[in-house]
Write a protein that binds this DNA or RNA. Structure first.
Lengths: 207, 207, 207, 207
DNA sequence: AATGAATGAGCCTTCATTCAT
DNA sequence: GATGAATGAAGGCTCATTCAT
């Protein structure tokens, strides 16, 4: 499919990928301009279509590229030997924040992709996202020590409630950052808040 | 501001509003075409701009309209005499699903609006959303009987965890419906699932 | 033709005339908006067309109105008893400047009208301008004492050369004002410059 | 800037330039339609904007093109060895009329440009015109034999009066042609008239 | 007389994509 | 492989004018 592109010298690949990610992350699928991408990447108009066929396929390729980049690093860093659920989640939150810092554009791209509503890519994208969720859902809970949890409740539901809480917490902080004038995320405040929720949730769901 | 439009006969207003909501809900702000809206509403091009000035103002007007329509019905139906938190949330979930059924396009429009990233409307929209959040946040917890909850934890955090759980639950079901071929929401299944989570959460957080 | 309009109460007539002159003077025929005119004049859209038929006729009416307003005052003020040509022209220049100060919008309108190139009004306007020139050309020279001029030249050519000089002088000052940041006309400088040219021309063409 | 356009085959360049000049000359900046231009030039809509960016830049490019075309021919033809002022002006008048005959549309375009009031191009255009005036003002008087003129008057004013006379004379003839049904300029009559004015002016201002 | 809602052609500009070179 | 000129549909929006009330 994208073999032509992948056989390019890495430097040119990177130039193109970075230019495209930047444009899509900033403007979303519809408003992103292939003109801007080729200008930034310093390649010709025709070449982009030679490599990717069309805008949609390029976007979908970038989504995969971004997802893999982030996922690879994520699973490289997470310690599956840590069997305590809360510590595992704490780890996940910290790693996510680290990656956010390291690859802001890529992260931005993925985040926007989750909310991308353009009819051109919506269907394909949702399919991809669903698959990813199915694949990864289990992974993060792999090897968790379930013996610490109360046994008078459905363990799956407990895990879900805990996951939901931290996801919503992150979303809310993100939303707050979005609405603040500086768009700055206050990592320290999030960490502190998370610890307080850990405490409540441990008291509620651990033996 | 929109007095010209609001003085129209209701039938024509509805035709225009429905056409516009449908178009924006389906395609998002940028890709939505005023051409399509006037075609669907069976009015002339110029008239739309006679009423709303421009696309952006029309979109913002529709957001207000949609929000008010939903909020009015929501707060008319919710029983603030019900002081038990879980029953209150159960109510809220059911009412929301009912409205979702009754006004699917309006709901769609609002949901999309929350994620609308078009630079044209982003700023204004976020301001509106922020204001709404500030206003309504407290309202749903009004008059709740807090004496039933455990006292060894921060009550605010408990309430948040519970809210988060049901919000995420709804979102997940919605997402599942989105990805299913028929886009059908299985209300019964949701109700049943919600009851099971009520049970878990009561056990965890009630005295 | 415009009897409907002319039978209006003067106050309303003035409101409409002023609004229209302002808009045309500022934007030229094509870009002038009938919408802006009715808004400023506080009358309804339809009424404007009821009175004037269409934009073109309104413009032509305004040209006549403006021309008459200026010409009436001009010929009321000019002293036809002054038989010296240079004094007569000096008078004309001073009166013109006075009127410019008193009716800046009307003057602006007439000036713009002379350069109006819109195909819609060009032909009609040029016809009007030609007629006016024919009528008024003689008037300003009426009763001039020709005995002061040299007799070895065609007197008509002498008068033309003198007129041309002052017309061009005015045009140049106007153009300079146009190109200056403040658009301010320096009347004192013009008067002084004119006097210097008077001197040269007297020496050249008087006995 | 306009390299894309200037690298085109001359035939196509000419087709586009002629179509554009014609349209702007006839209708002025605002009313000129890019649609008409591309139709006349037989190119696609997009191509025009590919070459010139937007309407304004195209107009400004054409102004430069027209000015250079005329100025180049003018200064190629004028004989700077001719030191007699009247002969020099006679030359200038004849060359101008020749060019007018040869490039009527270009001339028209420039003339209209001087009076172009559209806010879109006014500022830029006036800047260009001002610069041109500064550059060319001296050139036409270069090497003139001033010893023939009377010494009891400001020589600069004399030269101005003479220039003004011939400029106005040309303008009047042009205006007459404009208002005549055939739009024909009667060069012979102009030459004869000019000679008569030469005579008067020589008598008045030469020693 | 007076209103202002309604029209729809026309405006400039953008864009992904194609294809001859 | 690489170029960038060329396409033309579609975009949001404006406007003088009409006409039912």
């Amino acid at each position: 499919m994208f073999t032509k592109f992948l056989n390019l010298e890495t430097e040119k690949q990177d130039r193109i990928i970075n230019a495209a990610i930047k444009e899509f992350a900033q403007k979303g699928y519809d408003k992103a301009s292939t003109n801007e991408i080729v200008k930034e990447a310093e390649i010709s108009k025709g070449l982009l279509f030679h490599y990717f066929g069309n805008k949609k396929l390029m976007y979908l390729f970038l989504f995969d590229y971004c997802y893999e980049t982030i996922a690879d690093e994520f699973y490289k860093k997470i310690d599956l030997a840590e069997r305590d659920f809360f510590n595992r989640i704490r780890q996940a939150v910290l790693i996510k924040m680290d990656l956010l810092n390291k690859y802001p554009e890529i992260f931005k791209f993925i985040e926007e992709a989750y909310f991308e509503d353009s009819i051109d890519v919506k269907a394909e994208l949702e399919k991809k996202i669903k698959e990813l969720n199915d694949i990864n859902l289990g992974k993060i809970y792999e090897g968790i020590d379930l013996s610490k949890f109360r046994e008078d409740m459905d363990i799956k539901k407990i895990l879900k409630i805990i996951s939901y809480t931290f996801e919503k917490l992150s979303e809310e902080e993100l939303q707050k950052a979005k609405l603040s004038p500086t768009h700055q995320i206050d990592y320290q405040k999030i960490s502190k808040e998370a610890e307080e929720y850990f405490e409540v949730l441990t008291k509620a769901f651990y033996k």
